[in-house]
């Protein structure tokens, strides 16, 4: 039951963040959305993800949002106040297709699902012995799938480079 209430609040936050015209309010609601998401992660047993979501999703993202909102117009301008029909049709069609797709998915929480019976039992069996850490998430992240993490670091480096270049060219133009 608690899960359902959390997921309901998640939906409410998502809708208000999108519908709100004052962009600062949107940013704060998005931060609340991230915090509720962090609680959902704890309920689903993903504690490492919850920590990251609370610090990165609710923390750094919000700081970035506010930093940008100090530089641009804070109010969304509405030229026509109505729900646009064509995007709505596209969204509903894609949503229906995705829901149809979930009907074939294994049941929520089933231990027999393919994703839970392949590769992972090996990690759980040998992880502590082979990597020397009690935390399986850390063991997989840094050891078994170390190359993924290397790729992630490359992405962050590239993104940082992009941001620096974009902001610098803007400063040059102002001079």
């Amino acid at each position: 039951m608690a899960d359902l209430i959390l997921l309901f609040f998640l939906l409410v936050c998502a809708v208000t963040a999108v519908a709100q015209r004052e962009l600062l309010n949107s940013a704060i609601i998005l931060s609340i959305y991230s915090l509720i998401m962090a609680v959902v992660w704890v309920r689903l047993g993903a504690v490492d993800v919850a920590i990251t979501e609370a610090s990165v999703g609710a923390g750094i993202s919000t700081v970035l949002f506010i930093a940008v909102l100090t530089r641009v117009k804070r109010r969304e301008e509405i030229t026509r106040f109505r729900v646009q029909v064509l995007p709505l049709i596209v969204v509903l069609a894609v949503g229906a297709a995705l829901i149809y797709g979930t009907l074939d998915m294994p049941d929520f929480g089933s231990a027999a699902a393919v994703s839970n019976t392949h590769v992972v039992p090996r990690y759980l069996e040998k992880g502590v012995e082979e990597t020397g850490t009690d935390n399986y998430v850390a063991a997989i992240l840094a050891s078994y799938r170390g190359y993924d993490t290397l790729g992630e670091t490359t992405v962050i480096f590239t993104a940082g480079l992009c941001v620096v270049l974009l902001i610098r060219s803007e400063k040059k133009r102002r001079l």
Binding site: T52, V56, G57, S115, V120, V137, D148, I156, L166
Partner: peptide, 30 residues
């Protein structure tokens, strides 16, 4: 145990998502 593999993938994805947001913000400011 709960399957730890999706947790690892999502940890990576959260950080990549913030990188995307940061680059998008730099573009918006420009």
């Amino acid at each position: 145990y709960i399957n730890p593999l999706p947790h690892v993938l999502i940890l990576t994805a959260i950080v990549v998502g913030v990188s995307i947001t940061a680059v998008a913000f730099a573009l918006v400011v420009n």
